[in-house]
Design a protein around this nucleic acid. Structure first.
Lengths: 126, 126
DNA sequence: CTGGATCCGTCATGATACTG
DNA sequence: CAGTATCATGACGGATCCAG
């Protein structure tokens, strides 16, 4: 499993671009809170406006939404489309890079679903 | 993408077993720091002792190692094998459940590798 | 409508020292 | 050898208010 890529799993480097394990790197990008819920919604609804995201991603605040969107944009997983209008109108959409995550997320989701059942089973026996 | 499984992405529930998205659930289990490095090492070295893990997973402390191992064991991703001997001997190994993560991690790692290249490229142009 | 700024509590992480 | 216990801290997340 990618053991040939010098995978420094010790988090000792401050430079995210040095000696990074691609797996850890992926998790750092998408693993933070709200990232996946946002992307998930964009998977199903291309071109979504800021406030719609805020309404649909339950519980998120403006601050966290803004921050998450900015980070996703910096990694080129989403694009920000700003219309010069009053009142302001901004839409967000996934890039091809963002969509490329789908297969990996599906695999992980499949595993998570099985795990969820097993853990439920275990907890009900205790 | 699993939209049929009631996927409450709002993190509003305190009960981890209620209305959970399997994808988020998976990330909660394996996304924490040190989890993957430990599992990664166990992928490549079945039956590893506590202190060997501590040496090989660079930078980890006893406390974090113990905690991570305990959580992984609670989710049945690893097993703890204790030998009744002086001095103590304990080995850890992946379960089938733990090994079942491999395909998903490979997909994610593949994506992360591509992303890493793109991000490097981008940063070198700035 | 689309954010930005600020304050603040909590929790994960880490350093250090200790134990059977 | 395989952990525990205690304390410190700093990032993260949430609430609230402000702005163009």
């Amino acid at each position: 499993m990618n053991n040939d890529t010098n995978c420094d799993v010790g988090f000792t480097s401050d430079n995210i671009y040095e000696t990074k394990c691609p797996l850890i790197y992926a998790l750092e990008i998408i693993g933070k809170k709200w990232k996946l819920p946002i992307m998930w919604y964009l998977f199903e609804n291309e071109f979504t406006r800021y406030n719609e995201l805020k309404r649909k991603v339950k519980g998120i605040t403006s601050m966290m939404l803004t921050k998450a969107l900015k980070e996703l944009e910096e990694h080129n997983l989403i694009v920000r489309i700003q219309y010069e209008a009053i009142p302001p109108k901004v839409e967000y959409a996934l890039t091809e890079r963002g969509k490329a995550l789908l297969p990996a997320l599906n695999e992980l989701s499949k595993w998570g679903g099985e795990q969820l059942k097993l853990d439920r089973l275990k907890s009900s026996c205790e």
